[in-house]
């Protein structure tokens, strides 16, 4: 496609009409915003967009239990290996004799996610063979120092809660 450059006549070459036209447009916006109309700013801490978060929103990674209250994670450590910034640290343990879920064999003894490192990529969720780790909708993760930014196992289960049934990842949008 050839775009022809229009020859400007002398009034257009003065630029002044165009500048005045531009000023009129900005003035219209200024007046409208001054009257409080059309301002799209959201006052963040008071107004939040939480209600509009989509189901597949990638917030903080969390651990989930199944409907029987069993922790789904089997400490395979795949998430630890795939995590690009190496935010996850897992110490596996053997499930002791006498435990009703003894035949699962392994569970995490320690499961730390360093939220100062996590990039919310969701790879951990994608790689987990047991569907034990999910990215939930929490996005405002703060702490006063680096150690406070590490989410331990208890915190992860508390944030994750219970997940019923399986999620078929190959479905449209999870």
């Amino acid at each position: 496609m050839i775009v022809h450059r229009k020859k400007l006549n002398w009034i257009e070459k003065l630029y002044l009409p165009a500048i005045l036209g531009g000023l009129a447009i900005t003035w219209k916006h200024f007046k409208k915003s001054l009257l409080g109309k059309g301002v799209i700013t959201m006052q963040y801490p008071e107004e939040k967009w939480d209600a509009h978060l989509p189901a597949w929103y990638r917030g903080a990674p969390t651990l989930v239990k199944d409907e029987h209250g069993r922790e789904r994670c089997v400490s395979c450590q795949l998430c630890e290996f795939i995590c690009p910034p190496r935010a996850i640290t897992i110490e596996p343990m053997e499930i002791p004799e006498g435990d009703p879920w003894r035949k699962v064999e392994k569970a995490p003894q320690k499961f730390d996610i360093d939220m100062a490192r996590c990039i919310y990529c969701g790879l951990c969720e994608e790689v987990c063979p047991e569907q034990a780790i999910y990215l939930r909708k929490d996005y405002s993760i703060t702490g006063l120092n680096r150690t406070e930014m590490i989410h331990h196992k208890e915190k992860l289960y508390e944030m994750g809660g219970v997940m019923h049934g399986l999620v078929f990842k190959w479905n449209e949008k999870k």
Binding site: H29, S33, L34, V39
Partner: peptide, 10 residues
Amino acid sequence: RVSALIQDRL
């Protein structure tokens, strides 16, 4: 402030 109002911000 003026730039914000011109750009429909606060």
